[in-house]
């Protein structure tokens, strides 16, 4: 229970740290900032874990998780899961979720509704779907998954590997053209 309590506090600290840094340092790369906050919080968790007694001075004996090494590992796992599955996902969805952006646009629309043709033009406060795909393509170029050759987009070896992995996963889950 000590590990869980400390990890919960550290996780709240991550959210607070991300919120503060995003507001006060808007020019810094967000994902790198978030990873830095997570690493700092993990380090703080490790230090505090080993500096405090197993019962934190107030936990009843029945709530002390034993063995303590497992409690410690569980604390680090919980904190990492709360970041990678929680805060970082929340950031990803808020910053570049395609469907969510459509929902937000619809919310701002006077009729809270739109046709597909209107979505093409009004997406992301009027930037449009062309802009959205430009951002996606830029991400793929930056990650070296594709290269651009005079108007032709080409898969790199890395991109081909990722494409194969996800094609197999889609077949496994039976989604898309691969899954039927």
């Amino acid at each position: 229970m000590k590990g869980t309590l400390l990890a919960s506090l550290a996780s709240v600290g991550i959210f607070a740290g991300m919120t503060w840094l995003f507001a006060t340092r808007p020019m810094l790369p967000r994902v790198r900032v978030a990873l830095g906050v997570w690493a700092t919080a993990t380090l703080a968790l490790v230090v505090v874990y080993f500096l405090t007694p197993p019962d934190l001075g107030f936990l009843p004996a029945g709530l002390v998780g034993t063995p303590s090494w497992l409690d410690f590992l569980f604390a680090v796992f919980t904190l990492s899961a709360s970041f990678f599955g929680g805060w970082l996902q929340l950031y990803n969805l808020a910053s570049r979720g395609y469907s969510l952006r459509i929902l937000i646009d619809l919310l701002c629309h006077p009729q809270t509704s739109a046709t597909p043709e209107e979505v093409v033009d009004s997406y992301a406060d009027g930037r449009g779907l062309d802009w959205m795909f430009e951002v996606r393509l830029a991400g793929l170029l930056q990650g070296a998954f594709v290269s651009d050759d005079d108007g032709e987009v080409m898969l790199t070896a890395r991109g081909r590997t990722i494409a194969r992995v996800f094609r197999r996963l889609r077949a496994l889950y039976r989604v898309g053209a691969d899954g039927g």
Partner: peptide, 8 residues
């Protein structure tokens, strides 16, 4: 992912 698979 859609884009990578389409290219492949």
């Amino acid at each position: 992912v859609d884009t990578l698979i389409l290219l492949e």
